[in-house]
Each structure stands twice: as structure tokens, then as C-alpha cells.
């Protein structure tokens, strides 16, 4: 908690996978990680909004992150889970394939993202190389795509209400 103040350059990110790709989000946005549980479906919403779920008394939308980024929907399995995050004071849950780790990166290590093929402009804030916790020495380093949650805000997707 206190490290973010003392080491301005240091950031904690939570890494997770979607298919073969490794993603990271800023730890400060994360509220909790919960097991996948079928949400209550909603009418009139884009397909990537899977529905809503009860997060300690508030109704939180659950988004299939993979579809949100324009890829094939994640397949559900035992390690599927929901990352509950806060975006500008609003909460949302993202369905991801598998949560990997919490790693500390230096802001200076973040490289700008080259064109990444996704349907949401600016959703990828940058790329960073991280050490993987693995015994496979040949594969110890991995590229992690840092997500810009603001770009994924659901309220920006208001269809044509009002």
C-alpha cells in the first residue's frame, strides 16, 4: 500500500491471461477476484455484457473481456474468474481466463503499444516485459499488455438512451 508513495516509479500490476496473451491491470483498480458464477443476463445490452452480479449488495455488470476487445469469447473452465475493478468510481467485473500473478514493474519499463489488433482504441496502454514465475527457464520472460481500464468503461457504451 505504502510503496506507491515511496517509489513513484514502481507499479504493482495484476497479470492474467486471455487465451495465449498475458495482460496486466493496475493493482490499484482491483477490488477483488472472484470465481466465475453465471451472472443474471440483461436485455438490450451488447453481447460482451454477460449480465449483472451481486457484489456485496451492489449490482455490478460482468463483461467478457475477450469479446470486449473483439476476440472470440473465453471458454469457461475451472480457473475462469472475474476481476472486479473500479473504473472512475464505477464497478465492473471482467471475465478472464486465469489470474497469474502480482508483479512490480517500473513505469520507465513500459513501452508504448504498437498497433494492437483490438476493436477498442487505446485500450492497451503499453507493453512491459515481466518475469514469469515458472520453472521453464526458457520461457521465463513474457510480454504483458497493460490495459487502460478507462478506455473500457461501460458507460461509454451507452447505446442511444436519452
Amino acid at each position: 500500500m505504502s510503496t506507491e508513495d515511496t517509489e513513484l516509479d514502481e507499479r504493482k500490476i495484476v497479470t492474467f491471461t486471455l487465451g495465449s496473451r498475458l495482460f496486466g491491470i493496475d493493482m490499484r483498480s482491483l477490488i477483488e477476484i472472484r470465481e466465475w458464477e453465471e451472472p443474471t443476463p440483461l436485455p438490450s445490452v451488447p453481447p460482451y455484457v454477460k449480465g449483472v452480479t451481486n457484489l456485496r449488495g451492489s449490482v455490478v455488470p460482468v463483461v467478457g473481456l475477450s469479446e470486449r476487445l473483439g476476440w472470440a469469447p473465453s471458454e469457461l473452465h475451472s480457473r475462469s474468474c472475474i476481476l472486479v475493478v473500479t473504473i472512475n468510481g464505477r464497478h465492473a467485473g471482467f471475465l478472464v481466463d486465469e489470474v497469474q500473478d502480482i508483479v512490480v514493474i517500473q513505469a520507465s519499463e513500459i513501452q508504448p503499444a504498437p498497433d494492437v489488433e483490438i476493436n477498442e482504441q487505446g485500450a492497451i496502454a503499453g507493453l512491459v516485459k515481466i518475469e514469469r514465475r515458472t520453472h521453464d527457464a526458457a520461457n521465463a520472460e513474457a510480454m504483458c499488455l497493460l490495459l487502460d481500464l478507462d478506455a473500457l468503461s461501460l458507460t461509454r457504451q451507452v447505446p442511444d438512451f436519452a
Binding site: T40, L42, S58, P61, L154, T155, V158
Partner: peptide, 22 residues
């Protein structure tokens, strides 16, 4: 619903039932 999402036509909101489901 607009707390975390946006209003949806046809729905007046959601509620949490006794068993915790929505």
C-alpha cells in the same frame, strides 16, 4: 443499473433477492 452500467429500456433496475441472486 446506471450506478455501474447504464439504464436499460424495459427495466426499472435490479434487486438482490434473499438468496443473494439478482
Amino acid at each position: 443499473l446506471e450506478d455501474n452500467l447504464h439504464p436499460i429500456r424495459g427495466l426499472g433496475g435490479a434487486t438482490i433477492l434473499g438468496d443473494g441472486s439478482i
